[in-house]
Simulated assay, not measured.
Amino acid sequence: MKTLAHHNTQLIKQKAQALGFQFCGISKAEFLEEEAPRLEAWLKSGAHGKMSYMENHFDKRLDPTKLVPGAKSVVSLLYNYYPEKDFAQENPEAPKLAKYAYGKDYHHVIKEKLKEFMSILTEEIGEIDGRVFVDSAPVMERQWAAKSGLGWLGKNTLLINKGHGSFFFLAELIIDLELEPDGPIKDYCGTCTRCIDACPTDAITPYHLEANKCISYLTIELKDELPQEFKGKMEGWAFGCDICQDVCPWNRFSKPHNEAHFEPKDGLKELFNNNWQDLTEAVFREAFRHSAVKRTKFSGLKRNLEFVGKN
């Protein structure tokens, strides 16, 4: 006999798919016991660099019931952002931009979908207490996604899905609804070390990321001057970096997204096709309006461009 938890679990997975999420997995909302010592050791080693916010809310990162009192389930979701055409890397002379930043800022796009998701569930099931998250709170997104079987944490520490690779945004519902949890899957990295070998700043060792050496950290999170030790090692990346994903064999299975909001604007394409030396604050504001690149501010992007020798 099918239980209410089973019915609600199937409903949630069906609605997730209808909203465009490629994968949906469920975990019991409980303390991430195995992650606690790993997170503590990572922070103590200083691998998080100047991301001091990572040191905050240690308990909340590990225990979803401290974020949502009474929470019973964590619903993990993956939303594809792999582009059909990698326009930002077509011109070898142009600076490089991480694929996730080609279109509209994913925080806004996915947050709207999550709000709609909660609204649909409330209509179908009744009052649900919970919160939605998309890279916006102390939630260990990759760990929850792995716990629910959506993939495994690769040697580059990213979540890898066996059938579709790793070019996904992660999001969660943490809710007070009893659901049927999924289980984790095995690690399929095997003996492969392509991500480790390809990283030009030596940020990756197996299953460990020195974030303070990562090009994404350096070009986005770090607000100071870029350390001279990385001069000549950035390989043209001006915002983020996709190297460890581009070389990952599992990403040969990546499929183009069908999210109109993630398509690059004409102004951004023009910027990549023309001379970046013409980048002014007005051009920056127009090209990156509603884009995740706004995070660096004009001064930050100029700093990056000058450092990688693209301006």
Rank of each mutant, 00 (worst) to 15 (best):
H208E: 13
I220G: 05
S216L: 04
Y217H: 00
D187T: 04
K231F: 14
K162G: 04
D187I: 04
W237G: 03
C195M: 08
P227Q: 02
F230A: 00
K155V: 06
D224C: 09
P200V: 02
K162Q: 11
E172S: 04
D224Q: 15
W250R: 10
T201R: 11
K147P: 00
L209V: 12
T191R: 00
L226I: 15
I220E: 06
A211H: 04
R142C: 00
H164P: 03
E235Q: 12
E225A: 13
L179C: 07
D182Q: 06
I220S: 04
L218V: 15
R142T: 03
G236P: 08
E180Q: 05
S166Y: 02
A203S: 05
C195V: 08
A238W: 13
F230W: 03
G163W: 09
E210P: 08
E235Y: 08
G163C: 06
A145Q: 01
G149F: 00
D242H: 14
L179F: 07
E141P: 03
S216H: 04
A171N: 08
C199K: 00
I215C: 08
F169W: 15
K233P: 11
R142M: 02
T193D: 09
E172T: 04
L159P: 01
I196C: 07
M234Y: 14
W152E: 02
G236C: 07
P138F: 03
T191E: 01
F230Q: 03
F168I: 01
K213E: 06
G149I: 01
A203E: 03
A145K: 00
T219E: 14
G240Y: 09
E229S: 14
E178L: 12
F167G: 03
E235L: 13
N212S: 10
C189L: 00
F168K: 01
N212F: 10
M234A: 11
E210D: 14
G163N: 15
L177W: 06
L158Y: 03
C244Q: 12
W250V: 14
E210K: 11
I174M: 11
L222N: 14
M140F: 10
I160T: 05
P249M: 01
A211G: 05
R142E: 03
L173Y: 00
G236M: 07
D202P: 06
I215G: 08
C244I: 10
E180D: 05
K231Y: 12
E225W: 09
D242I: 11
D202M: 11
N212L: 08
I185F: 11
L209E: 09
G240N: 11
G240T: 13
T201N: 13
D187S: 03
K213I: 06
E235S: 10
E178S: 15
K186P: 13
P227I: 04
P249V: 02
G240H: 10
S148T: 00
D182S: 07
A145P: 00
P200H: 01
I220V: 15
T191K: 02
A238I: 13
Q245R: 04
L150R: 10
W152C: 02
D246N: 12
A203F: 02
G163P: 00
E178V: 12
G165E: 09
T157G: 07
L209Y: 09
C214D: 11
Q143N: 06
I174E: 13
I243R: 09
P181N: 15
C241T: 12
G154V: 04
W250F: 15
E221N: 05
T219A: 14
D202L: 14
Q228C: 05
M234D: 14
L209P: 08
L173R: 03
C195I: 08
K186S: 14
